[in-house]
């Protein structure tokens, strides 16, 4: 299951598993954000290529109007997935606190 909502300071908090079945809900939420947005991934357990597509689509839309999506609280597993996908080159990524 996936939960996505606004947290403190306008941060978007995503928790659970961003898989193919959960992408429509995540995309629907992220389609509404504007400007420079931090996505708190500290409770995100899992992401697949479908979830990466949601993040990429959002980053492209925000970048077109001088915004951006920043990924924070990224676990080592997610960091590997982002690196394998080349997302470390197109997103600002902040690792989770040890």
């Amino acid at each position: 299951m996936l939960a996505i909502d606004f947290g403190a300071g306008g941060t978007v908090v995503v928790a659970g598993r961003l898989d193919a079945a959960q992408c429509p809900a995540a995309q629907s939420f992220l389609d509404k954000v504007q400007g420079k947005v931090t996505l708190d991934c500290s409770k995100l357990e899992y992401i697949s290529s479908a979830g990466l597509g949601v993040l990429l689509k959002t980053q492209k839309r925000l970048a077109a109007s001088d915004g951006r999506l920043r990924l924070a609280g990224v676990s080592p597993h997610l960091r590997d997935i982002f690196r394998y996908s080349g997302f470390d080159q197109i997103f600002e990524i902040e690792a989770a606190q040890p």
Binding site: S49, G53, Q59, Y84, S85, G86, Q89, I90
Partner: peptide, 22 residues
Amino acid sequence: DTTTPLEGRTPGGLGLHLVAKL
């Protein structure tokens, strides 16, 4: 190609790439 800049990237095509990596 995972080195394409943001403006040239399109969603999709990463799934089997990740499979091969993992």
